[in-house]
């Protein structure tokens, strides 16, 4: 019995399952006001990449997997940009306690992303994000075409593969 329960424990703890049934659906970004690190108000409608696809990644300074993900992508970000012209918006959901630390953390890590603040989680809520990290891939028109929740090493390859698929007009995979 003890071993059985141990097994249940091992299998059951933090067993998170994602069912995404949206591979062929497209939705626009809801209108929400964010702030950049220079205190400028940025509306979600302003999130654009000159007609090219872009990525929105929700993160926070206290979220270890998010930082791992963004660090991993940062290593290849220059190559990604060269090959696809992609832009990444890293949107922090840190509250007033930590939002002043977002800029120092991002530059300390040497990230080249566009960092935005969603201090009261308004955009997070509007996009049905439960847990972070949560990554959205958007097409050149600013419509969500693909999304992924959580991060395990290797997920960045899936994201990049889908980015290339999107540009090539191929179906996206999960």
């Amino acid at each position: 019995m003890r071993y059985f329960l141990l097994l249940v424990f091992c299998v059951g703890i933090f067993y998170t399952k994602n069912i995404n049934a949206q591979s062929h659906t497209i939705s626009p970004l809801p209108p929400v006001a964010l702030k950049d690190l220079q205190g400028k108000t940025i509306n979600t409608g302003d999130l654009m990449n000159e007609g090219k696809p872009f990525i929105i990644d929700f993160w926070a300074t206290w979220c270890k997997p998010c930082i791992l993900e963004l660090n991993t992508i940062a290593e290849n970000y220059e190559d990604w940009q060269k090959e696809t012209g992609v832009k990444i918006y890293a949107i922090s959901i840190d509250d007033a306690r930590n939002s002043p630390k977002v800029g120092p953390l991002a530059s300390g890590k040497g990230w080249e992303y566009e960092i935005l603040l969603d201090e009261n989680s308004d955009l997070k809520r509007a996009l049905n994000v439960n847990n972070i990290p949560h990554t959205f891939l958007l097409n050149g028109k600013g419509e969500i075409v693909w999304q992924h929740n959580s991060y395990t090493p290797g997920d960045e390859d899936l994201l990049y593969e889908n980015l290339k698929n999107l540009i090539a007009g191929k179906p996206l995979t999960h």
Binding site: R2, L5, L6, V8, F9, G12, I13, F14, Y15, T16, K17, N18, I19, N20, A21, Q22, H24, T25, I26, S27, N128, N130, N131, I144, Q147, N149
Partner: peptide, 21 residues
């Protein structure tokens, strides 16, 4: 060595955004 308390933290996220292009 003995774990007395068992958690099953099962979170299922179902997302269904349905809108034909």
């Amino acid at each position: 060595s003995l774990i007395f308390i068992f958690f099953i933290f099962n979170s299922v996220l179902i997302k269904a955004q349905d809108k034909p292009e």
